[in-house]
Simulated assay, not measured.
Amino acid sequence: MAENLSHLRADARDNRDRIIEAAREVFAEVGLEAPMREIARRAQVGPATLYRRFPTKDALVAEAFSDQMRACGRIVDDGLADPDPWHGFCSVVERVFDLHARDWGFSAAFMKTFPRAMNFAASRDDSLAKMARLVGRAKRSGGLRRDFVMEDLMIVIMANGGIRTESTSASVAASRRFAALALQAFAADPSRVKLPPAARVPLVIR
C-alpha cells in the first residue's frame, strides 16, 4: 500500500510540474487569455486534473510566475542595496525589462490584479513599494529627474511588454535599447546614460 501511495504522490507531482511548465509556455506564446483547456492539452492531463490542482486561472498564473516574481523582488532588493541610488535605479529598470522581454506572459501577469492570488499580488506590491523608496533616494541623489512619478515607470513597463520580434534574443536586444532610451528620459542628466547598439526589428505598420 505504501508503495502505491508513493507512486500516486510522485504522479501528482509530475502532473503539477507539467501543468506549470505548459502554462508558462502557453502564456508566453499567447498571453493570459489562453484557455485552460489548451494548457491541459499541452500538459497532457485531463481538465479535471488541471482544475483539481488549480481551481482558477488566477491561481495557475500566480504559481506559474512565482519564480519570476521572486526574481523581480531580488532585483529591487539589489537596487536598494546599491550605494549609488541612481545606479541602483538604472540596474532595476534594465534587469526588470530584461526579465519581462524573455516572457510575454510574465509581463502581462505583472501588470494584472489577481484578487484570488494574494501571494502574487502581495509580492508585486512589495516590490513596487520598495521601488518607490529607491525612486525617492535616486531623486535626492540628483540622478533621477525631480518630476518623475511611479506611473512613468509603469507606462514604460507596459510599453516594453509590447515588444514583439521573431526571437527571444531579438526581443531582449530591443528591450535593452528601449530601457536605455527610457532611462535617458528619466535622468536628470541624459548624457549619463549610454545607448546600446540599435536593435534590428521588423517594422510593422497596421
Rank of each mutant, 00 (worst) to 15 (best):
L32R: 04
P35K: 09
P35S: 08
R37A: 11
R37D: 11
E38C: 06
I39K: 01
I39G: 06
A40M: 07
R41V: 05
R42A: 07
G46H: 07
G46E: 06
A48S: 14
T49K: 03
L50G: 09
L50R: 01
Y51G: 06
R52W: 10
R52M: 09
R53F: 14
F54E: 08
P55I: 04
T56L: 08
T56H: 08
K57A: 01
K57S: 00
D58T: 02
D58Q: 12
D58A: 08
A59V: 12
A59I: 12
V61K: 05
E63N: 06
S66K: 13
Q68F: 10
M69L: 11
A71Y: 04
C72L: 14
C72H: 15
R74N: 14
R74K: 15
I75G: 09
I75Q: 06
I75E: 00
D78C: 11
G79V: 04
L80D: 07
L80Q: 10
A81G: 10
D82N: 14
P85G: 05
W86A: 03
H87I: 13
G88N: 08
G88D: 00
F89K: 00
C90P: 00
C90Y: 02
S91H: 09
S91Y: 00
V93W: 00
V93I: 13
E94S: 12
R95M: 03
V96I: 14
F97D: 01
F97C: 08
D98R: 08
D98S: 07
H100Y: 15
A101I: 05
A101G: 04
R102G: 05
D103A: 05
D103T: 05
D103W: 00
W104I: 13
W104S: 11
W104R: 15
G105P: 02
G105S: 09
S107D: 10
A108C: 12
F110V: 03
K112W: 07
K112S: 11
F114C: 11
P115C: 02
R116K: 14
A117W: 02
M118G: 07
N119Q: 15
F120R: 06
F120Q: 06
A121N: 07
R124V: 12
D125V: 07
D125C: 10
D126R: 13
D126E: 14
S127D: 08
S127V: 02
L128V: 15
A129S: 14
K130H: 07
M131Y: 10
A132C: 12
R133G: 12
G136A: 08
R137T: 04
R137Q: 15
A138W: 06
K139L: 02
S141M: 00
S141E: 10
S141V: 01
S141I: 03
L144G: 00
L144V: 08
R145T: 01
R146V: 13
D147V: 03
D147M: 02
F148H: 06
F148N: 04
V149S: 09
V149D: 15
M150P: 09
M150S: 09
M154S: 11
M154V: 11
I155V: 13
I155Q: 12
V156G: 04
V156Y: 02
V156A: 00
I157F: 12
M158Q: 13
A159L: 13
A159Y: 13
A159W: 12
A159M: 11
N160E: 10
N160V: 03
G161N: 03
G162C: 14
R164T: 11
T165K: 01
T165S: 14
T165W: 03
T165G: 08
E166C: 11
S167D: 11
S167F: 05
T168Y: 07
S169T: 15
